[in-house]
């Protein structure tokens, strides 16, 4: 695209896509902002006019707001830690030559293809059910009192379910990164006297830095808006109400669109703060 003519032609041809994408993004966004300033109760009179900042102040001053924010951050943070740590270990394992590696690799990726609703239902009914679940059976096998997972260890259970689904994603990206590591570097380190742990710490982990950054950034974007896993399992009870879930309750259970929209705007702000924060810590890895 060197000449003036080709540049303007390119602009013209890209215009439809750009306009479509902008519309796609801007229309819902501006509608959310618009509703957040209205008193809008669909079942109790519909649009009742201008509300000013009232929705915003009510959403924040509600006793469920800060717990929802902290729940969101705890769940997202824990899932990130679990998937990255286990992902690195699994990737290391899958990089080793062993019999049946091809099949094992496909099996490892499988959870990612299971729909969130389905995986949550399977976990809830097949594994975590306190009377019929496999885990309860296992507990009883060792003579322990079965755990009512979703009420007694609710956050941990949710983290487990979500991490199970996202672990394959992390593993896959980290595995390709490990495979791109030059074997001679590891051999050089071996000759230089680095043991297995030192090779991991000094060579493999720095090499994975960029891939880990990407895993964290992409997962954060998706994890901030997780919904199905909570809806299906605890329904937001037992301290598992995230910001997304709170907004859902405001709009659909309380039928207050204005309040929910204000929550939506807060969620956008939270997402941006988290993204900025992440970029600061890990974004450096993306330059170099």
């Amino acid at each position: 695209m060197a000449t003036k003519a080709s540049r303007s032609a390119a602009r013209l041809m890209m215009a439809p896509a750009v306009v479509l994408l902008l519309g796609w993004m801007l229309v819902p966004l501006s509608m959310t902002v618009w509703f957040s300033f209205r008193k809008f109760l669909p079942l109790r009179g519909g649009d009742l006019g201008w509300a000013g900042w009232e929705n915003y102040s009510r959403f924040v001053s509600s006793s469920s707001f800060w717990p929802a924010v902290s729940t969101t951050l705890i769940i997202v943070g824990s899932v990130l830690v679990v998937t990255v740590v286990l992902g690195v270990l699994l990737a290391l394992l899958l990089d080793q030559p062993f019999w049946g590696r091809g099949i094992v690799r496909i099996l490892v990726i499988a959870p990612f293809f299971v729909m969130p609703t389905v995986s949550a239902l399977v976990w809830k009914n097949m594994f975590m059910d306190p009377t019929n679940g496999l885990l309860a059976y296992l507990w009883r096998l060792f003579g322990a009192e079965p755990l009512a997972w979703l009420s007694e260890a609710s956050k941990e259970s949710i983290v487990m379910i979500i991490a199970w689904r996202w672990l394959p994603f992390a593993t896959l990206i980290l595995l390709t990164a490990i495979q791109s590591l030059d074997n001679e570097q590891l051999e050089a380190a071996e000759m230089d006297g680095a043991g297995p742990l030192q090779r991991f710490g000094h060579i493999i982990l720095p090499h994975l830095g960029r891939a880990i950054t990407i895993v964290i950034l992409i997962q954060t974007i998706f994890l901030l808006s997780i919904f199905a896993e909570i809806f299906v399992t605890t329904g937001g009870a037992f301290g598992t109400r995230t910001l997304t879930y709170l907004i859902f309750q405001r709009v659909l259970e309380s039928q207050n669109v204005g309040l929910g929209s204000a929550g939506g705007v807060y969620a956008i702000i939270l997402a941006n703060i988290v993204a900025l924060f992440l970029m600061r810590i890990v974004g450096r890895n993306l330059d170099a």
């Binding site: 030059d182 001679e184 051999e187 050089a188 380190a189 000759m191 000094h202 170099a288």
Partner: peptide, 30 residues
């Protein structure tokens, strides 16, 4: 004996330098 215990040093065709370390840290690594 494992490579590190043989007291030999090797220079590879691809150099095999550690890309995330400075030259100083590369040389100091062993």
């Amino acid at each position: 004996l494992v490579p590190a215990k043989r007291g030999l040093a090797m220079v590879f065709q691809s150099y095999a330098l550690y890309p995330h370390m400075s030259v100083r840290r590369n040389i100091a690594f062993p």
